[in-house]
Design a protein around this nucleic acid. Structure first.
Lengths: 231, 231
DNA sequence: TAGTGGTCTAGACCACATT
DNA sequence: ATGTGGTCTAGACCACTAA
């Protein structure tokens, strides 16, 4: 007796039919029972293949209505958000971290508004640099709420960046991330070794945990930085 | 008899234990058989929950070695890549498209190198604009290989952008996408209504199908544009 | 070699949305 | 009312890999 038909094979076959035009955009696919009979598998196997296709954004399923090929295939890129250190080391470069400045004080108004902090809250403000093979890679401008993370007051960020420290303290948090372009100000230009006004790639990230706002960070990358993905 | 324990409940319970610190980063979880016994479910149900947790980047599994909580939870953002028109309309704004220029000619050297086109290939070059409520939203600078997509030679891009046309012609393609910052050149500044040298957010996308390079596009967004995601 | 996850089966019941 | 997908079960065999 030959081996079973795998869900991967089923998926591949269906994929070929969709990409080949046998089932064009908008078309209704046969039901799981029919496909299972055609492929000679259990219905669960077809179901497993279909779940993958839904996740890949190629197909839409509704009870009773059946499975249809998406008219516009849903395109989504998965973007890995690694630690800077890992990102640099993955490029085969030597990573170096340096603390620029750090101090504790009252949260400025714009930050309280942005993070939704209550009045009178204290924050720790940290500026630091990440280098790749000695070249400026990323300038980090971070604010940590001391109400939410009191341990950050005394933490030592001279040898290790605040990001790695935070990930260890609070491994599971909710993040809102945004990407934009910004013109280098004097401080950024100095640290990143570029001209005033140069166009720089910027990431802003706000992290919360258990409904409490933890930290807001603005990461500015060296001139010419690109973030790349495939899908 | 009460209903079955669902895989969602199993997943939620495991998630709570991980986030609550009962199973700290690096810890070895009980085997599927043990968990199934504890929860009173079939092993397949635990397996289903675990597969979700792997996908969420919280857990790593290896045969024989078992399931471990990831030391550094894998963070990845899912970025939807919609059509500009849809992106604009989802913001409740009125979308307008305008063709700026279009012509057919030999592919310039930099483009042939970038796309990996053979020598002597012809391309169609299209410049166009996308507006939201009358305001400049995105400037599109696109090259389409006429070797790979001969129908693009005669296609009419006065009423509809080349992106929507391409998605209809070739719904299933492979894409490499990159994000960066750029300083506005004269043409971009004029079309986007900003100053020369302004920092602009830029997306570059290269699309292939069946191993053939189809199109390369450079999308430059209006000043202040942000791309946002949560994870 | 033994223990773990990965997958398939055959059957069942349920939830949901269309009719 | 009915047909579809969504899920669970109990059991089985397999693939991988750590010990």
């Amino acid at each position: 007796m030959a081996g079973h038909v795998t869900y991967r094979e089923v998926k591949a076959t269906i994929l070929d039919r969709i990409k080949g035009g046998a089932w064009p955009p908008g078309a209704l696919l046969p039901s799981e029972v029919e496909l299972a009979a055609e492929f000679g598998t259990a219905r669960a196997t077809v179901s497993r293949a279909m779940r993958d296709l839904v996740e890949d954004g190629l197909v839409e399923r509704k009870r009773k209505a059946g499975t249809r090929v998406r008219k516009m295939p849903l395109r989504q890129a998965r973007l890995d958000i690694p630690l800077v250190r890992v990102e640099v080391e993955d490029q085969g470069a030597v990573y170096r971290y340096a603390l620029v400045a750090s101090h504790v004080g009252a949260a400025p108004d714009w930050l309280r508004a942005r993070m939704g902090l209550p009045g009178g809250g204290e924050v720790r403000h940290i500026l630091c640099m990440h280098f790749a093979d000695g070249q400026p890679y990323q300038f980090e401008d971070r604010w940590i709420s001391l109400d939410s993370a009191p341990d950050a007051r005394a933490a030592d960020f001279t040898a290790e960046g605040p990001n790695e420290w935070l990930v260890r303290q609070v491994p599971y948090s909710n993040v809102e991330i945004s990407f934009s372009a910004t013109a280098a100000d004097a401080e950024q230009a100095q640290h990143l070794g570029c001209a005033l006004g140069d166009a720089l790639f910027r990431v802003e990230r706000q992290t919360s945990w258990d409904g409490r706002e933890l930290t807001f960070v603005r990461l500015t990358y060296h001139r010419g930085y690109r973030m790349t993905a495939r899908y």
